[in-house]
Computed example of a mutant assay.
Amino acid sequence: MGKLGVIIVAAGRGSRMGTAESKQYLQLGQKPILVHTLQLFQNIQEVDEIILVVGADDVDRCSGYVADYGITKATQVLAGGAERQDSVRQGLGALQPGTEWVMVHDGVRPFAKKEHIFACLTKTQETGAAVLAVPVKDTIKVVDGNNQIQSTPDRRSLWAIQTPQAFRLALLLEAHEQAERAGFLGTDDAMLVERLGVKVSVVESDYYNIKITTPEDLPWAEWIVHNVRGEA
Rank of each mutant, 00 (worst) to 15 (best):
G5R: 03
V6F: 06
I7M: 02
I8D: 01
A11V: 05
G12Y: 01
S22G: 14
Q24P: 07
L26D: 05
Q30D: 15
L34T: 02
Q39I: 10
Q45D: 15
E46T: 13
E46R: 10
E49A: 08
D58Q: 15
D60K: 12
R61L: 10
R61S: 09
Y65F: 14
Y65T: 06
A67T: 10
G70A: 09
I71L: 11
A82V: 09
E83V: 05
D86I: 03
D86Y: 00
G91T: 04
A94K: 06
T99M: 08
V102D: 00
G107N: 03
V108P: 01
K114I: 12
E115M: 12
E115N: 12
I117R: 02
A119C: 07
T122W: 13
T127Q: 09
L132E: 02
V134W: 06
V142S: 07
N146F: 14
I149Q: 15
P153I: 04
S157C: 10
L158I: 08
I161F: 05
P164G: 04
P164K: 02
A166C: 12
R168F: 03
L171T: 04
L172T: 01
L173T: 06
E177G: 05
R181C: 02
F184I: 04
D188F: 01
D189F: 00
M191S: 13
E194K: 03
V202A: 08
E216Q: 15
P219C: 15
W220I: 15
W223K: 15
G230H: 11
A232L: 14
A232H: 10
